[in-house]
Design a protein around this nucleic acid. Structure first.
Lengths: 222, 222
DNA sequence: ATCCGTTTCAATCGATCGTTTGAATCGGTT
DNA sequence: AACCGATTCAAACGATCGATTGAAACGGAT
């Protein structure tokens, strides 16, 4: 029992490896999936040792927890800030504004921290393992409530099931595009989704906002 | 080297095991994911033996290939049929009709063959392993070209990238909802997406059609 | 220079994975 | 009843997984 998780006390040169482990985990978990990434490949990529994972994080799941916390906090804080902004305005936010406030913090991660963080988050949404899913849900949780309430206010004629559908669709669509799930396969019939490497990120973001906004507005109350 | 894959010749009582293996694979691959499902758990669920997988399918990947072929063929044939129907009509199909022709065969699988098949297909779309993804892409391939062409005809003002985005969004959204990715987690803020077990499948399907159709029509050529 | 808590690392553990093997069993044919 | 290809099964194989151990290396404080 020599490892510790949360000590803010004295970590001298340790911060280096701890950091490199998280960075490598974000990248490899996002690229190959969580279960498919072995600690050996991960620690090798981080120029470290297997035992370092257990020392710094206790286990692979501990490392995953740290990675989830690190990455999601970035997007969630920004979303929370933009919600504050919208709710302090005189008139209630439109659906388009709400969608933008949700999608753009995710997309900005892609530009700010490279595609690794965004891809990792995108991957989380479709992870089968219930423990991983719960980890994800716990992290999304706090912002989610505010968003659903705001969305429900912007779409007063839509019932709760409709709001839930709209929100999950937005979240899922954002995650799918962020995960690069559509870019990793040869779609022979399609012009390259990854035509070149520069991809049309901005255009895709606008397309996503337009698509989701229109989809939400088309919801019918029944 | 005693196993064979494609022999239509004489399989006497063998058909039973082969069938049970595929059924168990569809269910477990869909529930837990492909890599996370061990052949031991799978063959036990099928009341069979580990070696039977290698005998009938050569390997785990061979079994997966058979499962993909079996499940996707169902939806693809129906989609192809509905495309024939739409294209033989006097007037060109609307976007709404095209969306319906794509979404409903997927959703019908859910009702016809239980949630297992639909969930399995849904899971495929977000599988990280490139070999699995290629397997999926190869199977979707034939119908995909016709769909993209029809979609492009129905949305003449949208460029190729926009068509690609619309199609992948529809495919991804359908898969996500089919995979039950949103139903397997406790969303504390949401009324149960899986409220009870009977879920509102029909209502969700209509919501999906409306959402995707509106999203496509909102695409702007730029 | 010595000490001590912190951090790294090579080596190893038991468990589980997909695969392979060789013998037993089943059903129809001769 | 003797035979034979098709199928099933228990057992074992090598590889790899996450986790653990004990000793070495590091770095400031004394």
């Amino acid at each position: 029992m020599s490892g510790r998780d949360d000590v803010p006390g004295k970590r001298r040169a340790a911060q280096g490896t701890r950091e490199r482990l998280i960075e490598a985990a974000v990248r490899l978990f996002g690229e190959r999936g969580i279960e498919a990434t072995s600690l050996r490949a991960l620690t090798e990529a981080a120029r470290s040792n297997i035992a370092a994972v257990n020392y710094h994080f206790g286990s692979k799941e501990g490392l995953l927890r740290a990675v989830v916390d690190r990455t999601m906090r970035l997007a969630n804080n920004e979303r929370s800030r933009r919600l504050d902004e919208l709710e302090s305005a005189p008139e209630p936010p439109t659906v388009a504004a709400l969608v933008r406030a949700f999608v753009e913090p995710g997309a900005d991660l892609l530009e700010g921290h490279g595609p690794d963080v965004a891809r990792f988050i995108g991957r989380m949404i479709s992870e089968p393992d219930p423990r991983v899913r719960q980890l994800f849900a716990d992290q999304v949780d706090p912002v989610e409530g505010r968003y659903l309430a705001a969305l429900s206010r912007a779409l007063p004629e839509v019932d709760d099931d409709g709001i839930r559908f709209a929100y999950t669709s937005m979240l899922g669509l954002l995650s799918l595009h962020q995960s690069g799930a559509f870019a990793t396969v040869e779609w022979p019939q399609l012009r390259g989704p990854a035509s070149g490497t520069g991809r049309s990120d901005d255009a895709d973001r606008e397309r996503l906002v337009a698509f989701v906004t229109a989809g939400m507005l088309a919801a019918h109350p029944r």
